[in-house]
């Protein structure tokens, strides 16, 4: 009885918006209160863990822009993460710790990398696209490994996190709130972007490129723009990641990391705004649990990934949304 009444309420537009607003407020409040509660319960580790989820959710959201909404299966997206991490780590070696500088560097280098690789990669067919994005990610990986003066394949430890207004971004609580804020901002931005003229055209290009060309749109330019935005966002995410671990490593951009990012998007539901967030949370939690259960956890994770790929069509979030009405 209660379920059908709830369903009826959700179907009514105005009630639905009101409920959504209430849910958002509840989410915002609990998200803000979470660290305080965690510290009080002496479970500070979870603040770090949830921050990790927030950061990877952000990376997944950025990937979703081109993957879910653009239909471009980029299998090298984690390379932006590793690039971003080094954009924070390398300057600190020279004592340059300003957070805004790190972010600016990340945006500049990330967008440039996306532009250069996009120009090559976006001209290939879907299947070659997967392979070439993978190959370029490897290229960056080897480049980073060869930077012996910055740690090479052992990675680079950071003496200090990015500093903003005299505060260290690497402080657990600061990073938590900053990541939360950035995630919220990016999600809102993405919503606006997808409904904007650019976003609508981009979705059209993803749906039927031939049609859009025949209408007069230079489709490559649109895909490239989305790819650059996505890459830039993901690189900034890398700055946050470096602050989480105070460590930058080429392995942040390994193809396994890219595969995991893609999995988060698919698991949660590509092509939805909330999907990647749910997917990142689900994946990281499952990983955490399996790690605790068995030393052979990679195999169990692998089996899970296979199962998800074989049986899932649309991801958790889509399932939840569909079954609400």
């Amino acid at each position: 009885m209660a379920v059908s009444e709830l369903a009826q309420i959700l179907n009514d537009d105005r009630s639905a918006s009101a409920i959504k607003l209430v849910l958002c407020v509840i989410a915002a409040v609990s998200a803000s209160a979470f660290p305080i509660v965690a510290h009080a319960m002496d479970a500070s580790y979870y603040v770090v863990f949830v921050t990790r989820i927030l950061i990877y959710a952000l990376a997944a959201v950025s990937l979703n822009l081109v993957l879910g909404f653009g239909g471009l299966a980029s299998f090298g997206h984690a390379m932006f993460l590793s690039l971003g991490a080094y954009c924070a780590a390398v300057p600190t070696v020279y004592g340059v710790n300003g957070a805004w500088l790190h972010v600016l560097l990340a945006l500049t280098l990330g967008c440039s990398l996306a532009l250069l690789t996009g120009l090559v990669v976006l001209r290939t067919r879907e299947t070659a696209f997967i392979m070439t994005t993978l190959a370029f990610a490897q290229m960056l990986y080897f480049l980073l490994v060869s930077l012996k003066q910055f740690g090479g394949d052992e990675g680079l430890n950071m003496q200090s996190g990015s500093e903003i207004a005299g505060v260290q971004l690497s402080d657990n609580n600061v990073l938590y709130f900053v990541s939360l804020a950035v995630l919220a901002a990016v999600v809102l931005f993405q919503r606006r972007l997808l409904h904007s003229p650019f976003g609508t055209i981009f979705r059209g290009v993803a749906a039927n490129e031939q049609r859009m060309k025949a209408l007069g749109y230079p489709t490559l330019l649109y895909r490239l723009t989305a790819y650059v935005i996505s890459g830039g966002l993901c690189t900034v995410c890398g700055v946050l990641l470096a602050n989480l671990t105070l460590f930058a490593s080429p392995s942040y951009g390994s193809w396994k990391a890219s595969g995991e990012l893609m999995l988060m998007v698919v698991l949660g539901g590509a092509g939805t705004i909330g999907g990647p967030i749910v997917g990142a949370a689900a994946f990281l939690m499952i990983e955490e649990v399996t790690k605790g259960v068995s030393p052979h956890w990679p195999a169990y994770l692998g089996i899970l990934i296979i199962a998800i790929s074989v049986f899932s069509r649309n991801g958790i979030w889509t399932f939840v949304r569909r079954n609400r009405s």
Binding site: R192, L193, H195, S196, P197, F198, I201, G204, L215, G216
Partner: peptide
């Protein structure tokens, strides 16, 4: 409507507008 609007938008300005609503 959106299909036709996309056809109309092709030759016009504002195609790289990230902010306002196409609607």
């Amino acid at each position: 409507l959106q299909n036709v609007k996309l056809a109309l938008k092709a030759g016009r300005t504002g195609r790289f507008n990230f902010w306002s609503r196409f609607e």
